[in-house]
């Protein structure tokens, strides 16, 4: 088989270009998974280390960004679970595995500033509490549920599910543009 379309093992300059292109997205994704700055730094570093140890398995240059973002999310979700006090149990093994380089999250490309600008332009069209909730979340990365609950008069337990619902609504508005 030909290997012409495979990803050449990068040199330091090519690596730093990957950091420039995707480092900001990876950070934003780790933080959006609910991590504080220290845990987010660990999640992002973990994704780069998975990249280092997976260099030989990465074949498709088009998918590297999506894979880095997906891997960051995996590490972030694992750290977020631990921060909530959930102890890894019988399923510890998968946690040590990086995502399949050939199958990153389909939605990973959404984590992008251009897409974010389109989201902002649509956000004002959302009804309350979605508009305020998403603004608060987006502009205050370290806001706690309790603070958001107080600001918006929503029960604490409903904030997570409401946020998910509002995000889906926002996405639906964007999809309608097409």
């Amino acid at each position: 088989m030909f290997a012409e379309k495979t990803f050449p093992v990068p040199d330091q300059a090519a690596w730093e270009e990957l950091v420039t292109r995707f480092g900001g997205r990876m950070w934003a994704v780790a933080r959006a998974c609910g991590l504080g700055p220290a845990d987010a730094a660990d999640a992002v570093q973990g994704a780069w280390l998975r990249m280092v140890e997976s260099l030989d398995a990465i074949r498709d240059p088009e998918r590297i960004g999506a894979w880095l973002v997906t891997t960051t999310r995996h590490e972030a979700v694992r750290l977020a679970r631990r921060a909530r006090g959930e102890r890894p149990a019988a399923d510890r093994l998968p946690e040590l595995l990086a995502p399949d380089p050939a199958a990153p999250d389909p939605a990973a490309s959404v984590a992008d500033a251009d897409y974010g600008r389109r989201l902002w332009s649509r956000l004002e069209g959302l009804a309350e509490p979605c508009r305020s909730l998403l603004r608060l979340y987006a502009l205050n990365p370290d806001a706690k549920y309790a603070q958001i609950s107080m600001r918006l008069g929503l029960p604490m337990g409903s904030i997570g599910p409401t946020r998910s619902r509002c995000m889906s609504r926002l996405r639906a508005l964007i999809e309608e543009e097409r």
Binding site: W27, R31, V44, Q45, S164
Partner: peptide
């Protein structure tokens, strides 16, 4: 999906840029 959308909103707003030490660790990796 919600995490990716939230990340996109924050990136567009410049609300929480990646810290320099995180980028340095990435380059060093």
């Amino acid at each position: 999906l919600p995490a990716y959308l939230l990340a996109a909103l924050r990136m567009a707003a410049g609300a929480d840029p990646v810290p320099a030490r995180v980028s340095q660790a990435a380059r060093d990796a």
